[in-house]
Each structure stands twice: as structure tokens, then as C-alpha cells.
């Protein structure tokens, strides 16, 4: 175990797993409560188009990918808030279009096939210092936004109409939340890849919501599950021949199933206690 820490690339990978795990699980809280799971999957797939543009034009792919996914997120938010089209229709279209653009560009320049593979399935062992810095900055931005506007965001999750009637700037807060989710997806792609990144911003919160009815508990559990998944998956892939991305998502899925079972027994126990009291 300690030998693992002797490798530079492994140290960086562990720090990356910690940063991304924290980032994704905190946002997961809002993604689950505001029902944005499909948006997460949509953003990550459209990002392929943006990243491919960066690769072939030799502008920084992280930059073009970020711009692309933030614009997608805010575009979807705008269209669905205007109420003319449902969000999942818009996401469904963006999703495929972004993927198609990415595949077309990358095929046109055959030399990029190896990049395509690591984009789709992640490449955490190649994390550079610069990548870590980027993850750290996005994490700080996201935490600052959430800490500053936590009660307002919670009120928006509960009911947008009531929040708006109280005079809260629901539109701007929602848009910034979407932009933060867009950035999170981009920096997380390195960890698990485009195909699996949605799991990282959905499962921790979904599992936490199964066994906690209190927002503090849900937030803490979501963080716990996210970190166990991301760091645990990485360690697992060090000892066994499983790619880190797949290992992380499998651990998260297992945790989710565990919470389902736990939830089932908790409810049963409550029911039994309930019927006992009635007697």
C-alpha cells in the first residue's frame, strides 16, 4: 500500500481523485434534488465536440471543452426555463450533436485516436500538475458559490416558483449552478472519462438521499460516498487490472445498492415499530 505512494503519478492521481470526488459529490446534492442527472450526461457527451475542436486547432482542449460545456449547460437552462421546449428534448439533441462533431473531427485527423480513447474512458494516471491546479480552482469556485448561496439554492431546489415570488434571483443562480456543473464535468473527464462521468455527479447524492432525510446528513453522506468511490476505485485499479474509471463507478454502484438495501430495512423497522405502537 505505502509503496503505491512512492510513484509520482500515483500521488497526483490520488490528489486528483480527492479533488474531483469532493467536487462531484457536493454538486451531486443539487443534481439529484433538482433532477439534473440527464443534463450531466448530456454535458459530458457534448464536451467531446468542444475538446475535439481544441485538439485539431491546437488551442487548449480543456479551454475549448470548458467553453463548450458551460455554453451547453446554460443553453439548456435558458431554453427549458423559457418553457418552450422540455429540457430533455434539448439535451437529447445537444448530446448527439456534440458527440457527432467530436467523432467527425477526430476521425478527420487520424493521429488523435489514442486521445479519443482516453477522453472516452479517462486517463487519471496521466494527470499533470497543471491539471491538478485546474481541478483545485474549479473546486474552490464551486465551494465558494455553494457556501455563499446555500440557503437560496436549497429554496430553489424546493420550489422555484415560491423562491421567485419571494424576490430571489432564481434565473441567475440557476444559470451559475449549471455553469459550475459544466466546469465540473470537464475537469472530471480525466478521472473517469466522458462515458462514465455522469455517474460521479449522480450516484453519491442519489445514494445519500436514500438513507438521509436531513440535508446536512445527505450532504455529508454524499461526500463520504463520493470519496470512497473515487479514492477506493483508484486504489483498487492499482492492485487489480481494472481501469480506474470503471472501478470508481462500480464501487459507487455497489454503494448505491447498499443504500437501497439499508433503506428497505430501515423502513421495515419503522413499520414494525409503528404497528407495535398501534397495539
Amino acid at each position: 500500500m505505502s509503496e503505491m505512494l512512492n510513484y509520482d503519478f500515483m500521488q497526483r492521481a490520488l490528489i486528483a481523485a480527492f479533488l474531483v470526488g469532493t467536487l462531484c459529490s457536493v454538486l451531486s446534492f443539487f443534481v439529484v434534488l433538482k433532477r439534473l442527472s440527464f443534463l450531466g450526461a448530456g454535458i459530458s457527451h457534448t464536451a467531446l465536440g468542444g475538446i475535439a475542436i481544441g485538439l485539431v486547432t491546437e488551442i487548449d482542449p480543456v479551454l475549448t471543452g470548458s467553453i463548450f460545456s458551460v455554453l451547453t449547460a446554460m443553453g439548456v437552462g435558458y431554453v427549458s426555463r423559457a418553457g418552450k421546449m422540455s429540457a430533455d428534448t434539448v439535451i437529447g439533441i445537444f448530446y448527439a450533436a456534440g458527440m457527432a462533431l467530436g467523432i467527425a473531427l477526430i476521425s478527420a485527423f487520424e493521429g488523435y485516436y489514442p486521445e479519443l480513447f482516453s477522453l472516452l474512458f479517462g486517463n487519471i494516471l496521466s494527470v499533470s500538475f497543471r491539471d491538478l491546479l485546474l481541478m483545485g480552482i474549479v473546486l474552490l469556485l464551486a465551494l465558494a458559490f455553494i457556501v455563499l448561496f446555500f440557503k437560496e439554492l436549497l429554496a430553489i431546489c424546493f420550489d422555484e416558483e415560491m423562491a421567485e415570488a419571494g424576490g430571489l434571483p432564481v434565473g441567475p443562480l440557476y444559470m451559475v449552478l449549471l455553469a459550475v456543473i459544466g466546469l465540473t464535468v470537464i475537469v472530471s473527464i480525466q478521472l473517469v472519462g466522458i462515458v462514465l462521468v455522469a455517474a460521479l455527479i449522480v450516484i453519491p447524492g442519489a445514494a445519500a438521499l436514500r438513507i438521509s432525510k436531513n440535508y446536512r446528513g445527505m450532504l455529508a453522506l454524499s461526500l463520504f460516498f463520493g470519496l470512497v468511490g473515487s479514492i477506493g476505485g483508484l486504489v483498487l485499479s492499482y492492485f487489480y487490472p481494472v481501469p480506474p474509471g470503471a472501478a470508481i463507478v462500480l464501487i459507487l454502484t455497489l454503494l448505491f445498492i447498499l443504500t437501497l438495501v439499508l433503506n428497505f430495512f430501515l423502513e421495515k423497522k419503522l413499520q414494525r415499530r409503528g404497528s407495535f405502537e398501534q397495539r
Binding site: K151, L154, A155, G166, G167, P169, S212, N214
Partner: peptide, 17 residues
């Protein structure tokens, strides 16, 4: 499914700009 207590829900009514 909001994970809030009754008191939490009522206090969201206090939020204004």
C-alpha cells in the same frame, strides 16, 4: 423528496434579496 425538516421548509419563506 426534499430532505428538509418542517421548520427548514417554513424558513425558506424568510428568504428575500
Amino acid at each position: 423528496n426534499i430532505p428538509l425538516s418542517v421548520a427548514n421548509v417554513v424558513s425558506t419563506g424568510l428568504l428575500t434579496p
